[in-house]
């Protein structure tokens, strides 16, 4: 379906993007994750402006711009993460969060008392402090190559960012960035379905009766979102 972008936005909002649909549909808790305004640019609801700049820089380094297309920030991953912070997930309500909180072998999994929103807050502050100490600037002010070097340091996990092992924070950031790029655009990322276009994932088509085995031919149709957006 090819519609002018403004018409398409209205169509989308009218169909599924409205908060009322989700409340009616029994999905109240998810309504918070939905965009109620289609105006741009997105204003973060949870992150401070300093945190927001960190997130935009980090998402662009984790999912970089290249010949395949734009970076994770352009595709809305920061907006996705910001909106997720106000869901039960962001508040840690999907996790067992009773104490005592003790550290243990890494293979026994996450043992911090921090839900995602607090994990981001503490880690970003500590990451910026580390960047200032190392290079005299906040993370988002560094050259991309320095940002990448810093993210690699975090990934390798020998250091702490406040109370958070840097590796734990990095993995949270990496996972949420990729969720933003590849989830349905309903949640603020995957702008223009660009994440799905990259992989050749057809989104909500979900009917491959005629494509069970076409002997290795590529699937011919582009993606469609839950709200009916196409690319």
């Amino acid at each position: 379906m090819k519609l002018p972008s403004s018409t398409r936005r209205n169509f989308t909002a009218g169909l599924l993007g409205s908060t009322s649909f989700w409340i009616y549909g029994g999905h109240k808790v998810w309504a918070d994750a939905l965009q109620s305004e289609s105006s741009r640019p997105y204003q973060p609801q949870y992150f401070t402006s300093e945190e927001w700049r960190f997130l935009n820089a980090a998402c662009a380094r984790i999912f970089p711009a290249d010949a395949h297309g734009p970076d994770g920030a352009v595709l809305g991953a920061p907006e996705f993460i910001d909106r997720q912070m106000n869901t039960p997930y962001g508040h840690g309500e999907l996790w067992y969060m009773s104490g005592p909180f003790r550290s243990g072998a890494p293979n026994l999994g996450y043992q911090l008392s921090l839900p995602p929103r607090d994990l981001y807050r503490q880690s970003i502050e500590a990451a910026n402090a580390y960047a200032r100490q190392l290079k005299g600037q906040r993370f988002d002010e560094l050259e991309p190559s320095d940002q990448i070097a810093l993210l690699k340091t975090f990934e390798q996990g020998k250091m702490m960012l406040g109370a958070v092992p840097a590796h734990t924070f990095f993995e949270q950031l990496r996972q949420n960035t990729l969720e933003g790029v590849f989830s349905d655009p309903l949640y603020g990322g995957n702008k223009g379905l660009a994440g799905w276009m990259l992989l050749g994932f057809p989104g909500a088509r979900a009917d491959f009766m005629d494509w069970v085995n076409q002997k290795g031919a590529p699937y011919p149709f582009g993606p469609v979102s839950i709200s009916g957006e196409t690319a």
């Binding site: 067992y96 072998a105 026994l108 996450y110 043992q111």
Partner: peptide, 20 residues
């Protein structure tokens, strides 16, 4: 958030909650 299990690998270890 309501209930999970704890896990350890060996008898002499302290088990920790399977939080996620």
């Amino acid at each position: 958030s309501k209930s999970t299990v704890t896990i350890r690998n060996t008898l002499d270890q302290e088990a920790l909650p399977y939080r996620r």
